[in-house]
Amino acid sequence: MTQEAISTDVVIIGAGPCGLFAVFELGLLDMKCHLVDILDKPGGQCAELYPEKPIYDIPALPVVSGHELTERLMEQAAPFSPEYHYNEMVEELEKLEDGRFRVKTDGGLVFEAKVVVIAAGGGSFQPKKPPIPGIDAYEGQSVFYSVKRMENFRNKKVLISGGGDSALDWTINLQPVAQSMQLIHRRDGFRAAPDSVNKMHALVEEGKMQFHLGQITALHGDNGQLTGVTAKGNDGSDYEIECDTLLPFFGLTMKLGPIANWGLNLHENLIPVDTGKFQSSEPGIFAIGDINTYPGKLKLILSGFHEAALMAQAAFKYANPDAKVTFQYTTSSTSLQKKLGVA
């Protein structure tokens, strides 16, 4: 399927706090933004890692949760009508002959943009893989990190590993479909919703599934097909669990991912930039927030906001080399206030 390219001023990779504030700063300069994020929601780390944790170092907000900060940034960006593309990972980034950039996602979206802003934090969120030797050989065949279709697990001997909502929810949802269901977790406490934990315990009491305390240490099988695992209990003893499918649910982690393949200079998985434009080694590709590095860099949200403001000026000049930029304040400029919808 060939998708028609979306033509825009700016593609922002990452809808975390820095990407969201970049929409505002670019919007003041009349630059239209599309944001692409691998998560199913805005906020980046603020949404995925610590939505409920208080943040104390945002200027003028003595305390704010990651969730609320995200909401407020969305509200601030809204007058500029940014378009959000969730559950999409940018895979390819190439420069076109006319100086613009073509951006392609894993879901088949194609953008053509005058500038690209990488605001990808620690990279893309990916499922955490348990450190079990040889697990790679089973992935995609009998070890899965997500459930795309429940039918794929019909009549399977499923073993789920983990203690969070994903682990418990899928234990409960797949139990009626699977031939057998077993859950293994390192302790008797769960971080999943108490209701799910109660349901799981009820299924165990009814004899419909089994729960094991311990940690998987080895996988057994042939040619990618699992036949069982060895687990270590909390008393240090080993035991065997028979299964043909393993679903490990250990949350998400950040990996640099495809950014490494875009021909940009990198330093220890970060994108070196200058501190005037926050531009990468490729003119027209900018990097702000946790993903960039420069002398004195601090990984603070407020630093990312500053970087977004300076980047926006440089991005505008890059996209409009002949235009004259007049620096204006939102407090006094009627034209900026019109853009914000307040004048």
Binding site: K128, P130, P131, G162, G163, G164, H185, R186, R187, G189, R191, Q215, N234, F250, G251
Partner: peptide, 15 residues
């Protein structure tokens, strides 16, 4: 604490 245990759960913590 609870939140530390949660993080150890997600990162394959041992005894």
């Amino acid at each position: 604490r609870g939140d530390e245990l949660d993080m150890l759960d997600q990162n394959y913590g041992g005894e």
